[in-house]
Design a protein around this nucleic acid. Structure first.
Lengths: 75, 75
DNA sequence: CTGTGACTTCTAGTCCGTT
DNA sequence: AAACGGACTAGAAGTCACA
């Protein structure tokens, strides 16, 4: 049930992820490799096109060495 | 891709959700109604049996009137 | 009021590529 | 380096009957 009501939130989430990834000087490919997800998938999440699941949020956060709550600031 | 490595995290997340819900004096049924999800689905999330996705996390948080980051404390 | 198992539908997530 | 597409498989979403 992916209501359009949350499109903006997904975009913000993705942008936040992108900012943090770039802050760590990683490419999408490098991050994808670190958390064992597909590079095209990481891209889709950053663009707010994907409704990522909890486990993968945690995997990404672990790979970025950040707390998940960082991704939810002003969401 | 739901590695068992994250089962503990899902359980913690669910327990946190349960604690917050109870703190608000809501039953699973009431919360489910608020966020328009099924009662048994909420139960499954609280028990850590479901790998919930971002949009549903946001819906639940909105219904509980909390920030998503609250659910990620010490995860 | 909540847990559980079983179930179908639909999307999350992968893998191949091109631009 | 990243966006984007098509085709595919694993797994989330969503529901129910019953305990």
């Amino acid at each position: 049930m992916k209501s359009e009501l949350y499109d903006a939130a997904l975009k913000k989430f993705g942008q936040k992820l992108r900012d943090i990834r770039k802050g760590k000087k990683l490419s999408q490919e490098e991050l994808a490799h670190l958390c064992q997800l597909d590079r095209t998938y990481i891209g889709g999440v950053e663009r707010g096109e994907r409704n990522i699941s909890l486990v993968n949020i945690l995997r990404i956060c672990k790979s970025l060495d950040i707390s998940p709550s960082m991704l939810f600031e002003n969401l």
